[in-house]
Amino acid sequence: MSHKQIYYSDKYDDEEFEYRHVMLPKDIAKLVPKTHLMSESEWRNLGVQQSQGWVHYMIHEPEPHILLFRRPLPKKPKK
């Protein structure tokens, strides 16, 4: 599979999560399941490479070739 064609967005966040999206080329996108969110082993098997802790959290129906990921931000110590 062509890992060079996978595009990784910059990371962005809110108060709770860090987010990123990953755009897959058409040949890989056709392998994305339409019935469920992928486990880490499933998206890694497609060639997506990112650190541990990312969760495929949403399917964007109009653009199924874009995978939406998030992971919890580290808890800030209370002052």
Rank of each mutant, 00 (worst) to 15 (best):
S9T: 09
F17N: 00
K26P: 14
L31E: 07
K4H: 08
K4S: 13
N45R: 13
S39L: 06
W54R: 02
P77D: 12
L37V: 05
P77F: 14
K11P: 13
E40D: 06
H56Q: 06
L67D: 03
H56L: 04
R20W: 02
P25Y: 01
V22W: 01
V32E: 02
V32I: 11
S39Y: 01
R20L: 04
Y19V: 00
S2F: 12
Y19C: 02
E15G: 15
L68S: 07
F69V: 03
Y7C: 11
Y57A: 02
P74T: 12
L73C: 08
K78W: 10
M58V: 06
S2A: 15
K11N: 02
V22Y: 01
R44I: 01
D10Q: 14
K11Q: 07
L46R: 01
Q52A: 14
A29H: 07
K30R: 10
Q49S: 12
R70W: 02
E61C: 05
P25R: 03
I6E: 06
P77H: 10
G47A: 03
H21Q: 15
K79T: 12
D10I: 10
K4W: 05
D10W: 10
E16I: 14
Y7A: 11
L67Q: 02
K26M: 12
K76M: 12
G47D: 01
K11L: 13
P72E: 09
R70A: 02
M1S: 13
I66N: 02
P77L: 13
K26V: 08
P33E: 04
T35I: 05
M23Y: 13
L46Y: 00
Q49D: 11
N45D: 09
I28A: 08
D13E: 11
K75R: 10
M38Q: 01
H21V: 09
H60M: 06
P64T: 07
Q49P: 01
Y57I: 02
P33Y: 00
E63I: 06
Q5Y: 15
S2K: 15
K34C: 07
V48W: 01
K79R: 12
Q49N: 12
K30Y: 09
I66A: 02
V32N: 09
Y57N: 01
E61S: 10
S51L: 05
H21D: 14
L68E: 05
D27E: 10
Q52G: 12
M1F: 15
P77K: 14
S2Q: 15
N45K: 13
E40W: 02
P74V: 11
I28W: 08
I28S: 05
L31T: 05
D10L: 06
P74R: 13
P33T: 03
Y12R: 14
W54S: 03
D10A: 14
K26N: 14
K76C: 12
R71G: 01
K75E: 12
H36F: 03
K26W: 10
K30A: 11
P25M: 01
E18N: 02
E61T: 09
Q50M: 15
H3R: 12
D13N: 14
E63H: 11
L73I: 12
F17D: 07
D13M: 15
F17E: 03
H36Y: 08
Q50H: 07
H3K: 12
E15S: 15
M23E: 15
K26R: 10
E40N: 00
P25L: 04
L46H: 06
R20C: 13
S51W: 02
S41P: 13
D13Q: 14
R44P: 00
V48L: 07
P62C: 14
V48A: 04
R70T: 02
N45Y: 09
M38W: 02
R44T: 02
W54Y: 00
A29K: 06
M23W: 14
Q5N: 13
K30I: 11
R71S: 02
D14I: 08
A29T: 08
E40Q: 05
K34S: 10
P62M: 13
K4R: 11
R70G: 02
P77T: 12
H36P: 00
D13G: 12
Y7F: 06
S2C: 14
R44G: 00
E61P: 11
P25V: 03
D13P: 04
V55T: 08
P33S: 08
L31D: 09
L67N: 05
V55I: 12
T35V: 05
R71H: 00
Y7M: 14
M1N: 15
Y57H: 06
P74G: 11
H3D: 11
S39M: 06
M38K: 03
K75F: 09
M23T: 13
S51A: 11
G53Y: 05
L73Y: 07
F69E: 02
W54T: 04
R44E: 04
A29S: 09
P25Q: 04
D14C: 00
H56M: 01
W43P: 04
Y8H: 08
I66S: 03
H65P: 00
K79G: 12
E16D: 15
